[in-house]
């Protein structure tokens, strides 16, 4: 069974906040459904724009088979930083999973898919909205 490190946030992301225990519940369920061994989650610091914990998780990537983040949108907002994460994961032949979306990447094609979703999401604040 592949071992994966959980990764959750302690601050809002993309304007949304999810309690940490709920993030872990979603990750645990994803791991169960995908036959992955869930290792305790690393929790990102609350300071805006900070990804120190994520960098540490990436530094320890060789010790696991992959990472399961709660959401795609826990990746850094900066496109170049995301690119580095895609590249390192592929080079190290690991898999990066996103529990709430049920998506993952381990190759270039899958990274492009994730990146497209990111770019659309970053563009949406500039699109029109309706008020219910």
């Amino acid at each position: 069974m592949n071992k994966v490190r959980g990764y959750i946030f302690s601050r809002p992301f993309m304007g949304e906040r999810v309690p940490q225990h709920v993030q872990n519940l979603v990750i645990r369920d994803y791991c169960n459904r995908n036959n992955l061994q869930f290792l305790l989650s690393a929790t990102e610091y609350a300071m805006t724009g900070c990804h120190l914990i994520h960098e540490q998780v990436m530094d320890e990537l060789s010790e696991v088979d992959g990472i399961v983040a709660y959401s795609i949108f826990l990746l850094p907002e900066n496109a170049e930083k995301r690119q580095k994460i895609y590249e390192k994961t592929i080079v190290m032949k690991k898999t990066y999973h996103f529990a709430v979306e049920g998506l993952k990447f381990s190759n270039k094609k899958e990274c492009d898919r994730i990146e497209l979703i990111w770019r659309v999401r970053q563009t949406l604040p500039d699109c029109y909205r309706y008020l219910a």
Binding site: V100, E101, L116, I117, R119, V120
Partner: peptide, 29 residues
């Protein structure tokens, strides 16, 4: 529509773009 307003079902967790055109891809980048 990719760029129309989303409700509780968001891009990424529920929807995914499937037919983005070149101009939008250029514009987003």
């Amino acid at each position: 529509g990719v760029f129309t307003p989303y409700g509780d079902k968001k891009i990424g967790e529920f929807f995914e773009p499937i037919t983005l055109r070149a101009a939008s891809q250029k514009g987003m980048a």
